[in-house]
Design a protein around this nucleic acid. Structure first.
Lengths: 113, 113
DNA sequence: ATGGAATATAACTGTAAAGGGATATTATAA
DNA sequence: TTATAATATCCCTTTACAGTTATATTCCAT
């Protein structure tokens, strides 16, 4: 219809919407960490940590920096910028629209009849 | 049941991280709609739409306003405010930390040895 | 009260993904 | 070379959930 603001790509949210992965993301706030560190601090098995990191990586939420036989995972900022933009535009929309819901619904009802 | 998950509550993201539910949320940007309207516009079966709306409702993303035998679903702003706060604080953190990753990793390595 | 419209819910199926364990890969060190 | 550490990948089981169909509920109109 009118100015349809491009909907958020859901895959990033899918990646974030799992407790262990969210915990990883929160952990990486303070800086890059290796797989082993992440697994230790979150009490995950190493394969489990690697798996979750792969999901995060596939969705561009983290990137890898190999260093000898370790791999430092670090957050990427871009997806968070996209998310911030989306949710911000959302807020503006809602404030504008729903100040008086009752009137709005009444208006809708009349239009339908 | 790892009781150590800080930060964002993941359940809201779980609710958003499904294509049909995201589509519903985008649809409700322009104002409240009934179940039937939502099902029609997104080409979902009625029970399917109701189910997704229940998930959104259980997570506080939408609320219901009964009107005769119709039910208008509308967005709630609070969860979006929470999400915006979270992602914003995130951004600040990352800008501050990761300006020069190479130095940071080097520093980490030295600390470990 | 009867019928129909709008919505919710229950029962079921199929599939995707989380979680665990074993193994493969890569890199370093002795 | 062999050994060991760090990580990825493969296999397997189980669970969660999207989606469908059928039925129940609620409300309005006649």
């Amino acid at each position: 219809m009118s100015g349809k603001i491009p909907g958020m790509d859901v895959s990033m949210l899918v990646a974030l919407a799992e407790p262990n992965r969210m915990a990883i993301v929160e952990l990486l706030r303070d800086g890059p960490l290796t797989v082993g560190e992440i697994a230790n601090r979150l009490e995950l098995s190493q394969p489990h940590a690697s798996k979750h990191l792969k999901v995060l990586s596939n969705n561009g939420i983290v990137e890898v920096k190999p260093e000898a036989n370790r791999r430092y995972y670090k957050l990427r900022s871009e997806p968070f910028q996209v998310l911030e933009y989306w949710v911000t535009s959302f807020q503006k929309n809602m404030e504008r629209k729903f100040d008086n819901l009752d009137d709005y619904v009444q208006e809708l009802k009349n239009k339908k009849q």
